[in-house]
Nucleic acid binder design. Structure first.
Length: 638
DNA sequence: GCGATCAGGT
DNA sequence: CACACCTGATCGC
């Protein structure tokens, strides 16, 4: 749950995802997506009153988010104050202090966040630097390198701060199978079941939140059916979603919910009470999307877990895993990282401290050129915070990485458009603040900033000419929502519009469709149940066993190979997620590295260059108790 | 009576 | 496991 208070240090006159308290005084509002924990105060009478007296305060969000917001009568009053913005279209917004007329210009770009329909990240560029507010997001490893607006030409933009969805910034959530892997697993399970007869029915036990729609649309498309849901009015203007949903109970796939009773089916009844017309009992399985994580990469990914005679859990995550967050952050290397999710029992300061090692080093602030030729100095000393997180990783069994080997997956970065296409067309807001903003420091940006705001810069892109007060298509584009990764199903209609940059590594990122990944022949196959319901079994994951006590079957069904995934460490021969301390230690001795993000393209330090660093580390180890210092020699053993 | 907040449950 | 949501109790206005 986000505990972000709503305001960013760099641009404190705007509020994001919080609308109460101090945020009542904001000059502009931003809503990343329509989950309730990001809408605090949004329907408050105080804010409503403020809007009625304001000529300039507006709420900015994606088209889809606006649609979803206004679908609820409680928020209908926002209609005239909400300004939807296209994805990937830098837009200039004037922040006006209405009492004094004081004005500040800010350029905002919406980036697809992959969390739920309409969810976006906000990239702000203005006099106080470039700041990225992620909202809630899930972006797969490597995809960040394909987000054009985070780059200037071929370089990563200089990002001052990231306000981060840190939900899974915890090594316990090291890895979560990709969206595609999870989807494929669910598809196979569903397909194997409903193909047996028309009385075989699947109940998707989803939470009462939107965010599962891509699952519904893919299932609907693949099996040429509709999914029964309680209510589809919020999607009434989104045909891409709507066409796969129905309120008609006569279908084989259900995601309906009963207001009260949850779990005393599923084998006998559906929440909607639907039965077969001829009285034949339905054969129902339930699939509960859950976040399942893995301590390390293994050859196989277990995305479906059987938890009962007819119940399953399927891996599903709305948020980036620990390794995805590390990938994201070490690629962008912001100066500051502000977590927006603080786990119970931890403080903001603690989480911020844990994120310090992924911030750009202060010593690099002046010398650093993103993706430039400067070499990282070996003299970089680990901070106290880095040591802390290093020890933390050791204790919980996280892979400890060598700074020389931690380089973000830059080689995967596809060629970005030539620099001359980089100037972003700025657009005016409807406060008629059309004058150019020449605060831009990047020379690459100057053309765009000073250009005619209505000029079309690049015909290869869609026109980004944005006049906010004119009628545009009011149909939110569902596919806008998706991140650059696309689902492997080639029939998918949900390919990315936002993938404006060529993606030669797409097959690696999505992975699972490469034939060789299916052909290693290491699966152990066996029939699973009496219904000829064939799935693939693997050995149990010991830490899942507690969930599976009622099952007489192997508790883990391997439905899908792990895709690709070479970038996040060495496969273990150990299937367990949770390692003992000893295992973690020996692992760290084997890999003997630790986790400082390195400048992309920097050369690998030689062992002799690393020695002073490790000496420092060993010396600092004395700050800790003796059992930690006993680990120090392993650091020196490379 | 309404809204905000919290605890507890799914 | 955790998320996002709902319900009901409590409190303050």
């Amino acid at each position: 749950m986000s505990s972000f208070a709503g305001r960013m240090k760099e641009y404190p006159t705007i509020s994001l995802d919080r609308f109460d308290r101090e945020n009542l005084h904001a000059r502009a509002y931003f809503l990343s997506h329509c989950h309730k924990d990001h809408m605090k105060g949004l329907k408050g009478p105080a804010l409503k009153r403020k809007l009625q007296f304001s000529r300039t305060v507006r709420l900015y969000c994606s088209f889809v988010t606006k649609e979803l917001l206004l679908s609820s009568p409680r928020y209908a009053f926002w209609e005239e104050y909400t300004v939807p913005l296209e994805l990937e279209s830098p837009t200039q917004i004037s922040l006006v202090e209405e009492t004094t007329g004081e004005k500040e210009d800010l350029v905002v770009t919406l980036l697809s966040a992959g969390h739920c329909p309409g969810s976006v990240m906000f990239l702000f560029e203005g006099s106080q630097g470039t700041v990225l507010y992620t909202g809630d997001f899930r972006i797969s490893a490597g995809d960040i390198s394909r987000m054009e607006h985070l780059h200037s030409g071929s370089r990563v933009k200089d990002i001052q701060s990231i306000y981060l969805d840190s939900t899974f910034y915890d090594p316990r959530f090291y890895r979560i199978p990709t969206r595609e892997t999870c989807l494929n697993g669910i598809m196979e399970l569903v397909g194997n079941w409903i193909s047996q007869s028309s009385y075989h029915v699947v109940w998707l036990n989803c939470k009462a939140a939107y965010g599962y729609e891509y699952l519904f649309t893919h299932l609907g498309k693949r099996f040429n059916t509709e999914i029964h849901v309680n209510n589809l009015t919020m999607f009434k203007k989104m045909p891409d979603i709507l066409s796969y949903l129905t309120t008609n109970r006569r279908t084989q796939i259900h995601a309906c919910r009963h207001p009260r009773s949850e779990d005393f089916f599923p084998s006998s009844r559906l929440p909607c009470g639907c039965t077969a017309a001829d009285g034949t009992p339905l054969r129902i399985i339930s699939i509960k999307p859950s976040t399942i994580w893995f301590g390390e990469r293994t050859k196989k990914t277990n995305v479906i877990i059987k938890t009962g005679a007819s119940s399953f859990r399927a891996c599903f995550s709305f948020h980036s895993s620990f390794s995805e967050l590390k990938d994201f952050l070490s690629y962008l290397q912001p100066v500051n990282i502000h977590p927006s999710v603080i786990p119970i029992g931890q403080t903001l300061a603690e989480v911020t401290n844990m994120l310090k090692p992924l911030c750009r080093k202060q010593s690099e602030v002046y010398r650093y050129k993103p993706l430039g030729v400067l070499k990282r100095s070996v003299a970089t000393q680990p901070t106290y915070g880095e040591l802390l997180i290093w020890l933390f990783c050791l204790l919980v069994g996280d892979k400890v990485q060598n700074p020389a080997e931690t380089a973000p997956p830059v080689p995967e970065k596809p060629p970005l458009p030539p620099t001359d296409t980089d100037p972003q067309p700025l657009t005016c807001n409807y406060l008629d603040c059309t004058e150019s903003n020449d605060d831009e420091e990047d020379e690459e940006e100057e053309n765009g900033a000073k250009g005619d705001i209505t000029e079309e810069h690049d015909k290869s892109k869609e026109s980004k000419k944005t006049t906010l007060d004119e009628n545009r298509s009011t149909d939110p584009k569902w596919e806008d929502f998706f991140t650059t990764e696309t689902l492997p199903d080639s029939q998918s209609s949900l390919t990315s519009r936002s993938c404006s940059v060529p993606s030669p590594s797409l097959s690696r990122a999505t992975g699972s469709q490469t034939p060789e990944l299916f052909s290693d022949g290491e699966e152990e196959e066996s029939a699973v149940n009496e219904d000829n319901f064939s799935l693939t079994l693997s050995a149990s994951l010991s830490n899942h066993s507690s969930q599976n006590q009622e099952s007489e079957l192997a508790d883990t069904l391997v439905l899908q190979h792990e895709n690709s995934g070479s970038e996040c460490g060495n496969p273990r021969n150990n299937d367990n997620n949770v390692q003992t301390e000893q295992e973690a230690q020996s692992e760290s001795q084997a890999s003997s590295d630790f986790d400082i993000p390195s400048t992309p393209e920097s050369k690998k330090p030689r062992p002799d260059e690393l020695l002073p660093l490790y000496r420092k580390l060993a010396a600092a180890g004395e700050m800790f108790r003796s059992e930690t210092s006993s680990r120090s020699p392993s650091l020196l053993s490379i």
